[in-house]
Each structure stands twice: as C-alpha cells, then as structure tokens.
Amino acid sequence: MSTQTNKTVTPLWEVFIRSRNGLAHKHVGSLHAADATLALQAARDVYTRRGEGLSIWVVPSNAITASDPGEKGMMFEPAESKIYRHPTFYEVPDEVGHM
C-alpha cells in the first residue's frame, strides 16, 4: 500500500503497560520509533504522563501474529459447550459450605 522506501518509514510498535504491581501488562496503544530503545522512551513519554504505569513493554507491531477473525467459529466456539469446565456445573449441597 505504501510507496515509501524503508528509509523514510519509521516502524510501528505496540505498547503494553503494567498499571499497578500485580496486574498484567495491558495493550494501551501504538507509536512509531526507529528502534527498541527509542520506542521504550517514547512509550514512557506518550503513554505514562499521568502516572499510568510501573512497567512498559514495547513490541514491534509486525512481530505480532493474530488469529483470523474469519476462523472465529473454529477457534472459539468449541469452548462454549464445555460447560463442565466451570464450577457452577457441579452441585454441592449448601450444608457442605464453600468449596
């Protein structure tokens, strides 16, 4: 789609931030940077200006492999019928207490 050469296209990065200790890193957005060091600095400057984070990951966008939404049925629907994987599937009398 792009006609520009690599010389002028700065790579895209995905930014993940851990907002508090104990929480997982969460995707917060993207940015452009020439390399990982600059990407990390930019992530700090762009996405943590209001104390949003304690830890940052940056990942080159093109390193992400995504599932195909067209295969959503095959990928995710089979799990929906496995209700026996959930605790509420099983009956335990109230007298037994919390389990």
Binding site: L31, H32, A33, L38, Q41, A42, D45, V46, R49
Partner: peptide
C-alpha cells in the same frame, strides 16, 4: 521532528 519527540521535549 516527529510527534513522539514533540511529546518528549514537552515532558
């Protein structure tokens, strides 16, 4: 020179 650096210099 780039939006990312605009953010950085302002910080």
């Amino acid at each position: 020179p780039a939006l990312e650096e605009d953010m950085a210099l302002a910080n």
